[in-house]
Write a protein that binds this DNA or RNA. Structure first.
Lengths: 117, 117
DNA sequence: CAAGATACCTCATCTGTCAAGGTATATTAT
DNA sequence: ATAATATACCTTGACAGATGAGGTATCTTG
């Protein structure tokens, strides 16, 4: 994998919420979707995924229900809540800020904003 | 603090290396520089900073030496090595990729790159 | 009927962050 | 004088998220 897990750490919830904002989905499908979006350069590990689901459900960001598949393995579907939507929006805003900040911090010679200080 | 520590996790080394690429420096000064660059929206905690120094020195990315201050508290200066410069370049490249990827993952509806798959 | 895909789950371990504590020197205020 | 603040370093233990390794069950394909 090209991206170290520490870099993605903390983004897991945002990634999941973004998926669920589009439609209700279940673990396996979400993971496949992520792989596809990233052209297989990144995948959530299953353990990471399911612990994140637990966290998000505890936080009230998502709810879950069992699908009524008559065939194949059972699926637990997740649905984003209003709280989850707000959280997602907040995480997206944070991401924009983080980008700006990190862009400057990773430069060798960042220009100063306020000369006095 | 506006940025959660989990988001910055994994970027600490890159941030430090970027500072040291400009000039030799010491812990306290680096931390002040980071605060200034981010307009005080972010600071490395001391413990984080010093554990990162140890890691980077073990990895051969930096070397250290005591400054010859005749007054004031002693300072341990850090210097980036060739290995460190390569690591920094690599981390900067990673960061570019991460941005692209995360931009897509944090979207609600990312367009697909390769329709077949 | 074995292998692989689908689909879920848990537990122990690892790693980076950080709060809380410590040391020491120099400057400034009281 | 001495208390407070800034400079400057360090260590330890706790915590939280990611993950490897293990498990269960169903369906399809060779």
């Amino acid at each position: 994998m090209s991206i170290a897990s520490d870099i993605l750490r903390g983004h897991t919830e945002g990634i999941i919420l973004a998926r669920l904002h589009q439609k209700d989905s279940y673990g396996y499908e979400i993971n496949k979707a992520i792989q596809k979006i990233t052209n297989h350069t990144y995948e959530l590990k299953e353990a990471t995924l399911y612990t994140a689901f637990r966290r998000l459900e505890e936080n009230g960001c998502i709810t879950s229900y069992w699908g009524n598949e008559t065939t194949g393995a059972r699926r637990r579907y997740y649905s984003i809540t209003d709280t989850g939507k707000e959280t997602l929006k907040s995480l997206q805003t944070d991401w924009l800020q983080t980008k700006t900040l990190l862009d400057r911090l990773m430069e060798e010679n960042p220009e100063k904003e306020t000369p006095e200080d």
